[in-house]
Protein backbone atom coordinates (compact mmCIF):
# COMPACT_ATOMS: atom_id res chain seq x y z
CA UNK A 1 0.00 0.00 0.00
CA UNK A 2 2.69 2.42 1.09
CA UNK A 3 4.84 1.69 -1.92
CA UNK A 4 2.07 2.80 -4.24
CA UNK A 5 0.98 5.84 -2.30
CA UNK A 6 4.32 7.59 -2.00
CA UNK A 7 5.16 7.86 -5.71
CA UNK A 8 1.59 8.87 -6.38
CA UNK A 9 1.67 11.72 -3.88
CA UNK A 10 5.12 12.69 -5.04
CA UNK A 11 3.91 12.61 -8.63
CA UNK A 12 0.91 14.81 -7.96
CA UNK A 13 3.05 17.27 -6.05
CA UNK A 14 5.61 17.44 -8.80
CA UNK A 15 2.87 17.79 -11.34
CA UNK A 16 1.48 20.75 -9.43
CA UNK A 17 4.93 22.27 -9.18
CA UNK A 18 6.16 21.63 -12.65
CA UNK A 19 2.86 21.40 -14.56
CA UNK A 20 3.46 17.92 -15.81
CA UNK A 21 6.89 18.14 -17.32
CA UNK A 22 7.88 15.08 -19.30
CA UNK A 23 11.48 15.05 -18.07
CA UNK A 24 10.16 13.62 -14.82
CA UNK A 25 8.39 10.78 -16.57
CA UNK A 26 9.65 8.25 -14.04
CA UNK A 27 7.54 9.74 -11.28
CA UNK A 28 4.14 9.70 -12.88
CA UNK A 29 1.00 8.92 -10.93
CA UNK A 30 -0.30 5.49 -11.90
CA UNK A 31 -3.97 6.35 -12.14
CA UNK A 32 -6.00 8.47 -14.47
CA UNK A 33 -5.75 12.24 -14.45
CA UNK A 34 -7.09 13.79 -11.28
CA UNK A 35 -10.66 15.06 -11.51
CA UNK A 36 -11.22 18.64 -12.49
CA UNK A 37 -8.32 18.80 -14.87
CA UNK A 38 -9.22 20.24 -18.25
CA UNK A 39 -9.55 17.64 -21.00
CA UNK A 40 -6.29 17.03 -22.79
CA UNK A 41 -7.64 18.14 -26.11
CA UNK A 42 -7.60 21.70 -24.90
CA UNK A 43 -4.64 21.41 -22.56
CA UNK A 44 -1.91 23.41 -24.19
CA UNK A 45 1.83 23.39 -23.85
CA UNK A 46 1.60 23.39 -20.07
CA UNK A 47 3.58 26.57 -19.40
CA UNK A 48 7.04 25.76 -20.59
CA UNK A 49 9.57 25.88 -17.75
CA UNK A 50 12.42 28.29 -18.37
CA UNK A 51 15.13 25.59 -18.55
CA UNK A 52 13.39 23.88 -21.44
CA UNK A 53 14.68 25.94 -24.28
CA UNK A 54 13.90 23.21 -26.78
CA UNK A 55 10.24 23.39 -25.86
CA UNK A 56 10.00 26.85 -27.35
CA UNK A 57 11.91 25.87 -30.44
CA UNK A 58 9.62 25.54 -33.44
CA UNK A 59 8.38 22.01 -34.17
CA UNK A 60 9.19 20.47 -37.55
CA UNK A 61 6.14 18.88 -39.21
CA UNK A 62 6.66 15.14 -39.81
CA UNK A 63 4.22 13.04 -41.85
CA UNK A 64 3.60 9.31 -41.58
CA UNK A 65 4.80 8.73 -45.13
CA UNK A 66 8.10 10.42 -44.29
CA UNK A 67 9.08 7.95 -41.55
CA UNK A 68 10.69 5.25 -43.67
CA UNK A 69 12.68 5.47 -46.85
CA UNK A 70 12.58 1.75 -47.51
CA UNK A 71 10.81 -1.42 -46.43
CA UNK A 72 11.57 -5.05 -47.06
CA UNK A 73 11.11 -8.37 -45.32
CA UNK A 74 14.41 -7.72 -43.62
CA UNK A 75 13.12 -4.58 -41.93
CA UNK A 76 12.31 -0.93 -42.26
CA UNK A 77 14.83 1.74 -43.19
CA UNK A 78 14.49 4.94 -41.20
CA UNK A 79 14.36 7.94 -43.51
CA UNK A 80 17.14 10.58 -43.40
CA UNK A 81 14.53 13.15 -42.32
CA UNK A 82 13.38 10.98 -39.42
CA UNK A 83 16.94 10.34 -38.30
CA UNK A 84 17.85 14.04 -38.55
CA UNK A 85 14.97 14.94 -36.22
CA UNK A 86 15.98 12.63 -33.40
CA UNK A 87 16.01 14.58 -30.12
CA UNK A 88 14.29 17.55 -31.79
CA UNK A 89 10.78 18.91 -31.54
CA UNK A 90 8.33 17.59 -34.16
CA UNK A 91 4.61 17.80 -34.79
CA UNK A 92 2.69 14.82 -36.23
CA UNK A 93 -0.96 14.49 -37.14
CA UNK A 94 -2.75 11.18 -36.88
CA UNK A 95 -5.34 9.29 -34.92
CA UNK A 96 -5.19 8.17 -31.35
CA UNK A 97 -5.74 4.43 -31.14
CA UNK A 98 -7.76 3.20 -28.18
CA UNK A 99 -5.27 2.58 -25.37
CA UNK A 100 -4.57 -0.95 -24.21
CA UNK A 101 -5.59 0.23 -20.75
CA UNK A 102 -7.32 3.54 -20.00
CA UNK A 103 -4.72 4.59 -17.45
CA UNK A 104 -1.53 4.20 -19.46
CA UNK A 105 0.87 7.10 -19.74
CA UNK A 106 1.20 6.49 -23.46
CA UNK A 107 -0.98 6.00 -26.48
CA UNK A 108 -0.46 4.91 -30.06
CA UNK A 109 -0.75 7.42 -32.89
CA UNK A 110 -1.75 5.85 -36.21
CA UNK A 111 -2.01 7.13 -39.75
CA UNK A 112 -5.66 6.07 -40.12
CA UNK A 113 -8.30 5.36 -37.48
CA UNK A 114 -7.80 1.90 -36.03
CA UNK A 115 -10.15 -0.89 -35.18
CA UNK A 116 -8.48 -3.56 -33.11
CA UNK A 117 -10.61 -6.67 -33.08
CA UNK A 118 -10.60 -8.29 -29.65
CA UNK A 119 -10.79 -11.84 -31.00
CA UNK A 120 -8.69 -11.70 -34.15
CA UNK A 121 -6.03 -9.32 -32.96
CA UNK A 122 -3.50 -8.62 -30.29
CA UNK A 123 -1.13 -5.74 -29.70
CA UNK A 124 1.19 -7.49 -32.16
CA UNK A 125 -1.24 -6.60 -34.94
CA UNK A 126 -0.49 -2.89 -35.01
CA UNK A 127 0.72 -1.57 -38.34
CA UNK A 128 4.44 -0.96 -38.66
CA UNK A 129 4.23 2.81 -38.97
CA UNK A 130 2.86 3.66 -35.58
CA UNK A 131 4.14 6.31 -33.19
CA UNK A 132 4.15 5.79 -29.47
CA UNK A 133 3.17 9.02 -27.75
CA UNK A 134 4.45 9.32 -24.22
CA UNK A 135 2.60 11.64 -21.89
CA UNK A 136 3.60 13.20 -18.67
CA UNK A 137 0.14 12.34 -17.35
CA UNK A 138 -2.03 9.34 -18.16
CA UNK A 139 -5.02 10.49 -20.14
CA UNK A 140 -8.59 9.51 -20.64
CA UNK A 141 -11.30 11.06 -22.80
CA UNK A 142 -9.31 11.88 -25.90
CA UNK A 143 -11.09 11.86 -29.23
CA UNK A 144 -10.34 8.63 -31.09
CA UNK A 145 -12.33 9.59 -34.14
CA UNK A 146 -10.80 12.99 -34.89
CA UNK A 147 -7.32 13.74 -36.18
CA UNK A 148 -5.05 15.04 -33.46
CA UNK A 149 -1.73 16.88 -33.61
CA UNK A 150 1.01 15.74 -31.27
CA UNK A 151 3.97 17.99 -30.59
CA UNK A 152 7.02 16.96 -28.65
CA UNK A 153 10.50 15.54 -28.68
CA UNK A 154 11.23 12.72 -31.13
CA UNK A 155 12.87 9.55 -29.79
CA UNK A 156 14.18 6.69 -31.95
CA UNK A 157 15.25 3.15 -31.17
CA UNK A 158 13.54 -0.05 -30.07
CA UNK A 159 12.12 0.12 -26.58
CA UNK A 160 9.90 -2.23 -24.60
CA UNK A 161 7.37 -0.75 -22.18
CA UNK A 162 8.02 -2.43 -18.85
CA UNK A 163 4.38 -2.48 -17.77
CA UNK A 164 2.73 -3.71 -20.97
CA UNK A 165 5.58 -5.26 -22.99
CA UNK A 166 4.60 -2.97 -25.85
CA UNK A 167 7.48 -2.64 -28.33
CA UNK A 168 8.01 0.73 -30.00
CA UNK A 169 10.52 2.13 -32.46
CA UNK A 170 9.51 5.78 -32.92
CA UNK A 171 8.24 7.79 -29.97
CA UNK A 172 7.22 11.34 -29.20
CA UNK A 173 7.56 12.68 -25.68
CA UNK A 174 4.56 14.95 -26.03
CA UNK A 175 4.28 18.44 -24.64
CA UNK A 176 1.10 19.26 -26.56
CA UNK A 177 -1.76 17.16 -27.83
CA UNK A 178 -4.56 18.97 -29.54
CA UNK A 179 -7.28 18.58 -32.11
CA UNK A 180 -6.01 19.03 -35.66
CA UNK A 181 -8.43 21.01 -37.79
Amino acid sequence: MKRRLIPRLAGVLLWLLLTGNGILGGLQPERAVPGGEPPLSIRRAQAAPFWDAWLRSPATPLAFNELYSGASSLGLELSPKLKSLEGKRVVMTGFMAPPLKPTLAFFVLTQTPMAICPFCSSDADWPSNIILVKLSQPVDSLPFDQPIAVTGMLELGTQVDSETGFVSLVRIQADTVERAD
Binding site: A97, P98, P113, M114, A115, P143, F144, D145
Partner: peptide
Protein backbone atom coordinates in the same frame (compact mmCIF):
# COMPACT_ATOMS: atom_id res chain seq x y z
CA UNK B 1 -8.50 -0.48 -47.47
CA UNK B 2 -10.66 1.26 -44.86
CA UNK B 3 -12.04 0.03 -41.56
CA UNK B 4 -15.82 0.41 -41.21
CA UNK B 5 -15.73 1.31 -37.53
CA UNK B 6 -13.26 2.41 -34.93
CA UNK B 7 -13.20 2.10 -31.18
CA UNK B 8 -14.02 5.32 -29.34
CA UNK B 9 -14.22 5.19 -25.56
CA UNK B 10 -14.80 1.46 -25.56
CA UNK B 11 -17.54 1.53 -28.18
CA UNK B 12 -17.35 0.79 -31.89
CA UNK B 13 -18.53 3.78 -33.90
CA UNK B 14 -18.73 4.29 -37.66
CA UNK B 15 -15.36 5.39 -39.02
CA UNK B 16 -15.75 9.17 -39.35
CA UNK B 17 -13.38 9.10 -42.33
Amino acid sequence: PTVPAIMANGKAVANPQ
